[in-house]
C-alpha cells in the first residue's frame, strides 16, 4: 500500500483556554481530493496551518508525507503548495517577480524557476500581466497568481484554504477548472470551504467540522444519502406564518426544518410532498423542489445553517 500523504491522530490546537481544534483524526491518501467543510471559526484554517507546519500543534500527532509536522517544517513545505485564505502576494514585486522570487525560496535553480514562472503564467492566464503591479490585479487574477505561485515547486499536495471565497461566479468557475486539471494530474488536494457546491464539485471525500470537532465524514454523495433525503421541498409562507404552517405539515416527508425565512421538507420525492402540502389546504407563497446538498447535511448535523 502506498504511504498516506497526511495522517492525524487526536490532533489538537489550543490558544490559552480556547481550543480551536479538538482532537480530530483523519487520513488523506495520495491523489485524493479531501475537504474540510464547516462554518467560520470551526478550526479549518488552523488545521491547514498545522499541516503546513506554520502553526505548532498542542497535542496529538500529525504526519505529513511521513514526517512529523512540528519538527520538519522546511522539508514538508518543500512538497506543499499553499494557497492561504487571504492572498499574501508580495506587493513590492511585480507579477512575474512574485513567481520567480517565490521559486527561489525553495532553493530551486534560477533556470528552472524562470521556466516554471513562464509556464505557470500561461496556466494562470496572466501572460499579459507579467510586468503588472500586484495591487493592480483583480480579485480573480490575484487568486490565480496565488495558485500559480503555490505550484512553483511542483508540489505533491496542494493546500487550499477557502480558494474561491470572495470571487464572482465566473472567476470561480475558471478557478475550479484549474483545480480540476491539478486533480487530474494526480496532485493531492486538501481544501477548506464553507461553500457546499464547491465541496460537492471538488472533493472525493470530506469531513464536516464544527467547533473544532469532526461531526461527519464521507463522500459528498454518502453524506447526503446518510443525513438527508434525495430531494428537498422548500416552501415559504411569509416570515410570520412559517412556524404555524410547520405544525400543520407534520407527517409530510421524513423531517421538517424551520428556517427564519422558509420551511424545508425532506422527502425522497419532493413533488409528492408538495402535493401533500396542497391537500392539507396550505398554499405557500413560493415553492421549490431541489436536490439535497451538503447544506442540508450541515443543517442536520449542527442545527445551524452554514453561512450565517
Amino acid at each position: 500500500m502506498q504511504q498516506l500523504h497526511i495522517e492525524a491522530n487526536q490532533l489538537t490546537k489550543r490558544y490559552g483556554s480556547f481550543t480551536a481544534v479538538d482532537g480530530i483524526d483523519f487520513e488523506i491518501a495520495p491523489g485524493e481530493s479531501f475537504g474540510f467543510l464547516g462554518p467560520n471559526g470551526a478550526g479549518k484554517s488552523t488545521t491547514m496551518r498545522m499541516i503546513a507546519a506554520t502553526s505548532l500543534r498542542s497535542s496529538g500527532s500529525l504526519d505529513v508525507l511521513g514526517l512529523d509536522a512540528n519538527d520538519n517544517g522546511p522539508a514538508i513545505r518543500a512538497q506543499l503548495g499553499i494557497v492561504p485564505q487571504a492572498d499574501n502576494l508580495d506587493e513590492e514585486l511585480r507579477v512575474w517577480d512574485n513567481l520567480f522570487v517565490y521559486g527561489r525560496y525553495f532553493g530551486l535553480p534560477r533556470k528552472v524557476v524562470r521556466q516554471r514562472a513562464d509556464a505557470l503564467l500561461d496556466f494562470a492566464q496572466l501572460q499579459q500581466k507579467r510586468q503588472a503591479r500586484v495591487d493592480a490585479l483583480s480579485g480573480g487574477m490575484k487568486r490565480r497568481l496565488t495558485i500559480a505561485r503555490a505550484l512553483m515547486n511542483e508540489p505533491k499536495i496542494m493546500l487550499l484554504d477557502e480558494p474561491t471565497t470572495g470571487l464572482d461566479p465566473q472567476a470561480r468557475h475558471v478557478l475550479w477548472d484549474r483545480l480540476f486539471r491539478l486533480k487530474d494530474s494526480g496532485t493531492t488536494l486538501v481544501l477548506t470551504t464553507h461553500y457546499m457546491d464547491e465541496a460537492e464539485q471538488l472533493c472525493d471525500r470530506l469531513v464536516v467540522v464544527d467547533e473544532g470537532k469532526i461531526v461527519a465524514e464521507g463522500s459528498p454523495k454518502e453524506l447526503i444519502r446518510t443525513y438527508s433525503t434525495r430531494e428537498v421541498l422548500e416552501v415559504r409562507f411569509g416570515t410570520a406564518k412559517n412556524e404555524e404552517a410547520a405544525g400543520r405539515l407534520a407527517g409530510i416527508g421524513d423531517r421538517i426544518e424551520v428556517l427564519p425565512d422558509r420551511l424545508l421538507v425532506y422527502d425522497d420525492n419532493g413533488e409528492q410532498a408538495l402535493t401533500a402540502v396542497g391537500e392539507r389546504g396550505l398554499h405557500p407563497v413560493t415553492s421549490l423542489v431541489r436536490r439535497a446538498s451538503l447544506e442540508d447535511v450541515f443543517l442536520r448535523l449542527t442545527g445551524r445553517s452554514l453561512i450565517e
Binding site: A52, A75, A78, A86, Y105
Partner: peptide
C-alpha cells in the same frame, strides 16, 4: 503578510 508567504515555502 510577507513572512506568511515566505513560510509557505521550504
Amino acid at each position: 503578510k510577507l513572512y506568511q508567504g515566505m513560510l509557505s515555502t521550504s
